[in-house]
Design a protein around this nucleic acid. Sequence first.
DNA 1: GGCGCCTCTGCAATCGATTACAACGCGATT
DNA 2: AATCGCGTTGTAATCGATTGCAGAGGCGCC
Lengths: 333, 333
Amino acid sequence: MRARPKIKDVATLAGVSTATVSRALSTPESVGLATREKVMEAVKATGYRINAAARDLRMRRARSILILAPNLSNTFFSRIFAAVQEEASAAGLTVQISDSRIGRERLLSLGYDGRADGIVLLDGSLDPEVVNGWQLPLIQLSEWNDAYDAPRLGIDNRAAAGLAVRHLAALGHRKVLHVSGPGDNVLALTRQQGFSGTAAESGIAPVVFPGDFTMEAGAGAARRWAKLSDRPTAAFCASDECALGFISECVHMGFSVPGDVSVVGFDDIDFADRFLPSLTTIRQPREAMGRLAAERVIAMMGAPAKEPRSRPAPPIHVAAALVERASTGPAHT
Amino acid sequence: MRARPKIKDVATLAGVSTATVSRALSTPESVGLATREKVMEAVKATGYRINAAARDLRMRRARSILILAPNLSNTFFSRIFAAVQEEASAAGLTVQISDSRIGRERLLSLGYDGRADGIVLLDGSLDPEVVNGWQLPLIQLSEWNDAYDAPRLGIDNRAAAGLAVRHLAALGHRKVLHVSGPGDNVLALTRQQGFSGTAAESGIAPVVFPGDFTMEAGAGAARRWAKLSDRPTAAFCASDECALGFISECVHMGFSVPGDVSVVGFDDIDFADRFLPSLTTIRQPREAMGRLAAERVIAMMGAPAKEPRSRPAPPIHVAAALVERASTGPAHT
DNA sequence: GGCGCCTCTGCAATCGATTACAACGCGATT
DNA sequence: AATCGCGTTGTAATCGATTGCAGAGGCGCC
């Protein structure tokens, strides 16, 4: 009662061998009906649960997937986590989670200790040597890094940024600010490229401020924007948080949104449509992204390990969309 | 190169036994200097990493803690996850995470398969039989259930609600609405008690609407509030999300906050101070809560399993505080 | 009645680590 | 010179499951 029952206890109680118990549990059809019932009864009676460590060791797999993200407390990630976990759980897998900025050694171990047999990676800034060193099914989600030898999933950030710019162009804006993310972040870069490219096509004068996706960065950008002599009439922020920070600071400074400045965000986090004004933004289907990534990695876990791919697979793009809300309006010259 | 090196490979390369390798890795001081160096070299050369399953099996512990929460995508939890993970990682532990609403069987297994050796539980609505059946160090965080035989950590919700009410009382409000959470939720109940109790003491007429902590619930409550003939001049919502929904809907209906109605939230989520108007709320020190819970459960993991406690330990309370911002103002009669 | 086949079950090896115990080498002590 | 003791190392058992192989038994068919 005190100690956890092991398979031996169940076997003894049911009057069979441990092999039979194991089979009754994993492949019931391979065991006689009467025996199976005896075993199940014994399992119930003892409250037996398989010891994961023993099984993992023997089977050389852990039935677990690992999620790595650069910042666990980020609102954008949480819904992805939930979707991955849900999908994993449905497949009978457990989920490990870790910040991806825990240091090279720890990180290496995580993907290498046999505890996980698949990885969903949300960080494109890790050492490719480390990432490629894990010999595990892995999928890059949202962020990516061309040096990683793994398939990737996410929206087309360049095109998505284009949607935002064209929306502003259509409203008559001719000078637009882009508040970007960290210079070494692949998402920030790609969105900025999309911004610049589309701005050029649309005859929009681009202005770019650096940022880091946070509300603080947005607020800072707003203060800097306010000081400009010839202020852009619209701002496209690289994240919703940044956009909310921007708007909030603008309002505190006495400007009106979208009266004085239209603002577009990126992500469509949960608060976007309850903010005041509600935020025009680019929706990333986070739930679907998480679900697809999980499905994908689970599928890879099932298949025999693919050997080094000859050429990188093209990214799998899920659809992003512009969500028009109240934070954008016509340019008032 | 292809297959993962095992301890045997390292031993062979270093010309020692596996026992020595194991010792060199876990208790270096028990191994001769020369040998230790040879081993370390071999470890580096082979890229050896301990196989977690094998070690877990032998040591009967997994160096891992499990976080269970009723909703992984909730903004309130994410920062707690981050803090727990950080603390765990610093202690050399990995983190498993799961939604706690995955069904009795799966849930039972999670705490019983030897994969985790400590649990941080954020859900007070699970079957006590299941929870008490896990024979693992466990701490209840935020939510709780008196039927769980485990220590608990969190703020004093009753008192915290009192802070909100007294704040409104001090501003001259005499009729206050409380938008509560689910009727079966211990946090909702306790906060509601705090609300009612303090309202009575402060000569405030209480009105209570049911809710469920979400923005939608807040918005719904706002619509219902608007229809009241003698409208409360203030609302105390059981969560920040609810409060934001409430405010947002009020503004959409043409009311001003705090002009027509003051609003207090609960939690102090990240967006609270950037919302427009910024949200007066009760701060829960989520980071500290996560950190403390982790510390606590890690400590329990170290100590020999305490046998069934004679009487329930009193809850450990961390300090909640009122954060005054712009969503509350004097009652305008 | 004998043979073969099929179904069900058990024996025992195995997964890859940790660790109790014993053995060994070697200098110090008597 | 024998003994003691200490620090180091190896041998082998062990953790708790899974599974290849072989044996037992039952059944049908000739």
